[in-house]
Design a protein around this nucleic acid. Structure first.
Lengths: 186, 186
DNA sequence: TCGCACATGTAACGTGTTACATGATTCA
DNA sequence: TGAATCATGTAACACGTTACATGTGCGA
């Protein structure tokens, strides 16, 4: 619903790829396998998704080809992130958190949290978490007042669903506080 | 990643619309407003999403036009769900829960939970929750063993992200047990 | 040598997003 | 009368999904 520019911004998937490439050189296939098998792999691993994404990232100059250290054709470890790609990634990581980030885009938010570890300063990271905490607290308030005002009018299942939403946010809030502590003590 | 038929199945959005229409007659605009304002509104409310969706649901015979009780042009309360639409909706509600439902598609799963209230039998509803509970428990086990095996190799932020995932699942598990109790006692 | 995992791609298709357009009704 | 909201739509575009195609290298 946000007004975005028509010139297409990188997708969440694009950032996920950049984030992976920031730490290690990978082939398209490796990236697919990571999305397929790991917990972060919230994204599709199908070739029809990954290869076109790599293509457009390359066209935008955000990634480049690292020449295969190529004895066999196998380990042609391929893609590298470019300085421009790095800049893009960091910009994404630095975006302020809003309501959507914690209500509808928690997975993307967690991804940002993971990727920022080696790319942002300690202050930026604790700032991120503090903002996460306050936004979440705020959101819980809204959900709760909503619950109190409407629950008598809501059906049982709707009530329970809303309770689930509130409980999830509370869990996130606790997690945020814990994470903040751990990061503050190095 | 599931092998789906090429003939397009209804989207999650389509089911959301059917679910709303099951309880009340609504105009396209009303539906948009619901998606825009309510907690369930995980879906886009833009006209470019809703009106084409309504069009295709109508073409599939899943919804129909209720003639406006039309004094003014305003409240031409429009769309109704057809028997075929009802059948589709119920089939969706009855789908067995799998790992994806509780790991990646929690919002859709909650939506199903809300819509099944008046459409499934008590046994079906408790069955749904029992299945939800056991799938979630199973998934937590996997995440935990993953954590124990890998955490020493993982970076701090990755560890914390995984902890968030586990905590979320635990919250869902607790919620499931609570919901089950409430539904079992009428 | 048979099959499987590795590895990369592409074409067709449907859907959501953005952006723009139009007109009616309500209310200040 | 003019602004805001109600109400419906469409065109261009980009993206993900499905399905198919192709070829290499390795181990049984």
């Amino acid at each position: 619903m946000k007004t975005r520019k028509f010139t297409p911004n990188p997708t969440s998937l694009d950032y996920a790829i950049l984030g992976l490439l920031q730490r290690q050189l990978l082939t398209g296939y490796r990236i697919r396998k990571i999305f397929e098998t790991t917990a972060l792999g919230n994204y599709s691993s199908s070739p029809g998704t990954i290869y076109p994404a790599l293509k457009r990232l390359k066209k935008l100059g955000l990634i480049g080809q690292g020449e295969g250290t190529g004895n066999s054709k196998k380990e042609n470890i391929r893609f590298t992130i470019t300085p421009e790609g790095m800049q893009m990634l960091v910009q994404w990581l630095q975006r302020p958190l809003d309501r959507e980030s914690i209500s509808k885009q928690m997975k993307e938010t967690m991804l940002r949290f993971v990727f920022m570890e080696h790319l942002l300063t300690k202050d930026q990271k604790t700032g991120f978490l503090k903002s996460f905490i306050s936004e979440t607290r705020e959101y819980i308030k809204i959900l709760k007042s909503n619950y109190e005002k409407e629950s008598h009018r809501m059906s049982l299942h709707s009530q329970l669903a809303l309770e689930n939403g509130i409980a999830s946010c509370r869990t996130n809030l606790r997690w945020g506080r814990k994470a903040l502590k751990e990061i503050e003590n190095h």
